[in-house]
Each structure stands twice: as structure tokens, then as C-alpha cells.
């Protein structure tokens, strides 16, 4: 009962999804089916590769089922995203180590302390950077802008605004304070807006 109600928003957002859960499906399978596509896209944004993304999602599913399946279903969502976030962080850490050894550098800087969210705050009356783009162009521009974001900003944007977690659950998923979530999100919005402005 509870599981069905908390998964409803994801299904509402994807009414055409063919993988409609059945009543016979165990609740945990329905939950994973509900989040798996968004999880893949999130992992794909983080890694830049569908293969790597699929590996991370499978790993996250395994870890989530092994460690948290016995928890109340109302707690599953932040726990699942926490496991996936942890896998994504591990992946980035491995890439950094590998990059250090091979002399490569990561595309996106992790430290974004120099951003000033107030200076880049949007004008509320303005239609926004995606307003004049067709969906296909806007989709490509958005993906490029998301991939260019620092990891923590991207995770804050995706978990908070796409997945719809509240600040507390986003903080739990990202293992940081609620204040950090707000800061990361604010910077993510400013950076996305600035990047997308170039596509107008």
C-alpha cells in the first residue's frame, strides 16, 4: 500500500512507460522498475558512458537489495539514491586515480568554490534559456550542460528537481548537510542557466 503510493509520482511522470508494474510484482521490484531509467540517465550523466552507467546502476541495485531491502518501503527512495550516489562517487574517485597515473585530467572540476550564486541569480521575469529551442535541440543542450556541471551540483539538481526528493532526503542521499544541498543546487541552477544561455 505504502510502496504503491510513494512510487506514484515516478509513474505519473512517465505515463507511456511500457514496464507497468503488476499487482503480483513484489514491491521492491516495482520500486526498482520505477527508478531504474532515471538512475541510468543519472549514472550516464556522471560517467559519460551508457555502458559504465548500466554497470553502476546494476551495482547500485545489488547493493541496495542486499543492504536495504528489509527497510520500510517508505525509506527506499533516499537509500537507493544514496547507494547510487556512492557508486558514482567511487567511479569518479577511480577515474581520478587512473587519471593521476596516466597524466590525464578530469573534464569537470570538483571544486566550484569560486561561483557566486548571487551574482549569477536569474531574473524571474525572463523566459529562461530553453524557451526558444525545439525539444531535440534543447535536449542535446541540456545534456551537454548537465555533463559540464561539477558532480555534486549535478547530483543536487537531479535528485532535488528531477527525482523530487526534498532537501533532507537529498542531503541523506548525497551524505552532506542540507545547507550544502541548497548551495550545490543554487550553483547548479546558475551554471546551467549560464551554459544554456549560449544555445539561445
Amino acid at each position: 500500500m505504502l510502496a504503491g503510493s510513494i512510487f506514484m509520482s515516478g509513474l505519473d511522470r512517465m505515463p507511456d512507460a511500457p514496464a507497468t508494474p503488476t499487482d503480483e510484482s513484489p514491491a521492491i521490484e516495482r520500486f526498482l522498475r520505477d527508478v531504474e531509467r532515471r538512475a541510468l540517465r543519472m549514472a550516464e550523466f556522471a560517467t559519460g558512458s551508457r555502458e559504465e552507467g548500466l554497470d553502476l546502476v546494476q551495482d547500485a541495485m545489488l547493493g541496495f537489495v542486499r543492504n536495504y531491502a528489509a527497510k520500510p518501503s517508505a525509506e527506499w527512495s533516499p537509500l537507493f539514491w544514496r547507494v547510487l550516489d556512492s557508486r558514482i562517487n567511487d567511479w569518479h574517485r577511480r577515474q581520478r586515480v587512473r587519471g593521476r597515473w596516466l597524466g590525464w585530467f578530469e573534464r569537470a572540476a570538483e571544486d566550484d568554490e569560486h561561483d557566486d550564486p548571487i551574482a549569477t541569480a536569474p531574473d524571474p521575469g525572463e523566459p529562461g534559456p530553453l524557451a526558444r529551442l525545439a525539444d531535440s535541440e534543447a535536449g542535446v543542450a541540456l545534456e551537454a550542460a548537465l555533463r559540464a556541471l561539477p558532480l555534486r551540483q549535478r547530483q543536487a539538481f537531479l535528485l532535488r528537481l528531477w527525482e523530487g526528493l526534498d532537501v533532507a532526503d537529498t542531503a541523506a542521499a548525497m551524505r552532506c548537510s542540507e545547507g550544502s544541498v541548497k548551495t550545490h543546487l543554487s550553483r547548479a541552477l546558475a551554471n546551467l542557466r549560464n551554459t544554456l544561455e549560449k544555445h539561445r
Binding site: 531509467r37 532515471r38 540517465r41 523566459p127 529562461g128 524557451a131 541540456l142 537531479l158 528537481l161 546551467l192
Partner: peptide, 18 residues
Amino acid sequence: AREAWVERAVALLDESAR
């Protein structure tokens, strides 16, 4: 109040997942 472009970004992300 969420900005319109954020709403559109979310819709585009939903579309990409669908």
C-alpha cells in the same frame, strides 16, 4: 516558484528516460 526553464528541463529529462 520554479522557473519555467527548469520545468522544461525536467520534462526533457523525463522524455530522455522514457
